[in-house]
Design a protein around this nucleic acid. Structure first.
Length: 490
RNA sequence: GGCCCGUUGGUCAAGAGGCUAAGACAUCGCCCUCUCACGGCGAAAACAUGGGUUCGAUUCCCGUACGGGUCACCA
């Protein structure tokens, strides 16, 4: 029978397990799932998969929800906000899974297994590649009843077909097929009464009406097993959307799955390192997906722009290497776009020590805004406004401006009284005065400014020019630093 | 190791049979400039490989190599 398929509303979900921090790879999965739903005006669900009671980490769910909140990935249904398919935490749905597992047994697609862990370990020792030997697959109903009545611990396993192949069409990878003989009779219900991921996510996705299962490509090969579960229940299979993995570059140049050893990989660590959430989202959106058509050359996307531009067909198949340099570039661009008040608000927490009272903090921050790629850099780059560091007079030497150590001394001595005479002390006044001085002296303005910048900062590379620095640290400190410089020649 | 998947510059990534094979980051150079940065201009840099199919393959097919994933009472 052929149906004229009515377009169903898209429903996606992000289903992390609360076992720690929010990995950047997980965030990208959440982003894509969110975008796929929003692009079509569909629904996005958050579901917490906490069936592994041993790995549970206190507070991990809060981290997940906080991250989604600050990145703007809003969900229509989920813990706390609720929804018509709740609860949205798997441990609160426990009875549901056993009910469906038993139904599967009745359907002949699953069976009770009473094998002990010891026996499984033994099996593994004998043949590490063999897997479970399906010892309990054909137990007689009487035997099962007897064991159940005797209270023998059990698990429930999926009964895989022994022959043939199972395939599915992935929205990213295309058709994927696996020989059924490769499929293990995987455990659906654990001895502790909790379901495994393999079972719980299928039941929940069905019950919650998820139409597109979006997840990392590590699930590509196990998906036929899940498809078989849908088939056994007589449910319509969802569209599978597997995402390429995120990789990190190793010291030796090779790449491997992005992890801690590649640097900060949790969203919160990145934020603590001075990255802006919008920059992170923009960057990771581009890892595994590229804008097409008229947008092909666009680099900057806000979340809502991504919602419009994103499409599954643009998702790449090959793994993408996470490039911290490019993230830094994005971040710097986003920092520049901030209005000053916002920048100041975000930067202040990264300033560890106070400035001397005369220092114009706003002036310092304005200089810094266009020159940092991470908020953490404001601390180091503002150090010279707090105190002058030690430096050698050789620093004054500069061939481009034709300054030698000797001429520097003369220039500084000429500049000092000129600056002392100034009534007001702002960038424009300073600049005008020094320009005039250089004319009187008959030398390049660059020479005068170069010497004063060194004297005012003690560094060859500074966040700002001579007059900007002097304006920020104030007249008294500026003159004191120049005198200190002159003293070096004594 | 079996199975599954992938392969456009160092990285991200357009291009989908005929193009001088986009763009971005990083790199290098030049210009601007009171330093750095910004900005402007420019350079270098890629279709893994061997066979097909085709008038013509980066693009389609097969093999090889390389890379990744997966083989849990973890997700």
């Amino acid at each position: 029978m052929v149906f004229a398929v009515e377009k169903q509303p898209v429903v996606t979900r992000f289903a992390p397990s609360p076992t720690g921090y929010m990995h950047i790879g997980n965030l990208r999965t959440a982003l894509y799932a969110y975008l796929i739903a929003r692009h079509d005006g569909g629904r996005f669900i958050l579901r917490i998969e906490d069936t592994d009671r041993e790995r549970l980490v206190e507070g991990a769910t809060d981290v997940i929800m906080r991250t989604l909140a600050v990145t703007g990935l809003s969900y229509d249904e989920g813990p706390i906000v609720g929804g018509e398919h709740g609860p949205y935490v798997q441990s609160e749905r426990k009875p549901i899974y056993m009910e469906y597992a038993k139904r599967l047994i009745e359907l002949g697609a699953a069976y009770y297994c009473f094998c002990t862990k010891e026996r499984l370990e033994q099996l593994h020792e004998e043949d590490a590649t063999g897997g479970y030997d399906r010892h309990c697959r054909d137990l007689s109903p009487e035997e099962v009843e007897k064991n159940l009545a005797a209270g023998i611990p059990y698990v429930i396993r999926q009964k895989m077909p022994l022959e043939g192949t199972t395939s599915y069409v992935d929205a990213v990878f295309g058709e994927v097929s696996v020989e059924n003989k490769e499929l293990q009779d995987q455990i659906l219900m654990k001895a502790d009464g909790y379901p495994t991921y393999n079972f719980a996510h299928v039941v929940d996705d069905y019950l919650m009406g998820v139409t597109h299962v979006v997840r990392g490509s590590e699930y590509v090969t196990s998906t036929p097993k899940y498809a078989l579960l849908y088939d056994a229940f007589g449910w319509q299979r969802p569209t599978y959307v597997h995402l390429p993995l995120l990789m990190g570059k190793n010291a030796d140049g090779s790449v491997s799955k992005l992890s801690k050893r590649h640097g900060a990989v949790s969203f919160e660590d990145l934020v603590n390192d001075g990255f802006l959430p919008e920059a992170i989202i923009n960057y990771i959106a581009l890892l595994g997906w590229g804008p097409k058509g008229e947008n092909a050359e666009v680099e900057f996307f806000t979340l809502s722009e991504l919602e419009k531009a994103f499409s599954i067909t643009g998702v790449n198949k090959s793994p993408a290497v996470f490039d911290f340099d490019k993230l830094c570039w994005f971040n710097g661009e986003y920092i520049k776009k901030l209005d000053f008040a916002t920048f100041k608000e975000k930067a202040m927490p990264f300033l560890h020590a106070a400035f001397p009272a005369e220092v114009d903090v706003d002036a310092v921050l304005r200089l810094l805004q266009g020159r940092v790629s991470k908020l953490t850099e404001v601390e180091g780059k503002s150090q010279l406004f707090r105190e002058l560091c030690e430096y050698d007079k050789a620093l004054f030497e500069n061939k481009k401006n034709k300054v030698t150590v000797e001429s520097a001394e003369a220039l500084l001595k000429a500049a000092l009284p000129c600056l002392q005479a100034l009534d007001s002390w702002d960038n424009d006044t300073l600049y005008a005065a020094l320009l005039q001085l250089s004319e009187q002296l008959g030398c390049k303005s660059g020479a005068v400014l170069w010497c004063l910048r060194i004297a005012a900062s003690g560094m060859s590379v500074t966040p700002g020019g001579a007059t900007e620095i002097m304006a920020a640290i104030g007249k008294a400190e500026s003159l004191a630093r120049i005198e200190k410089a002159i003293a070096k020649f004594a």
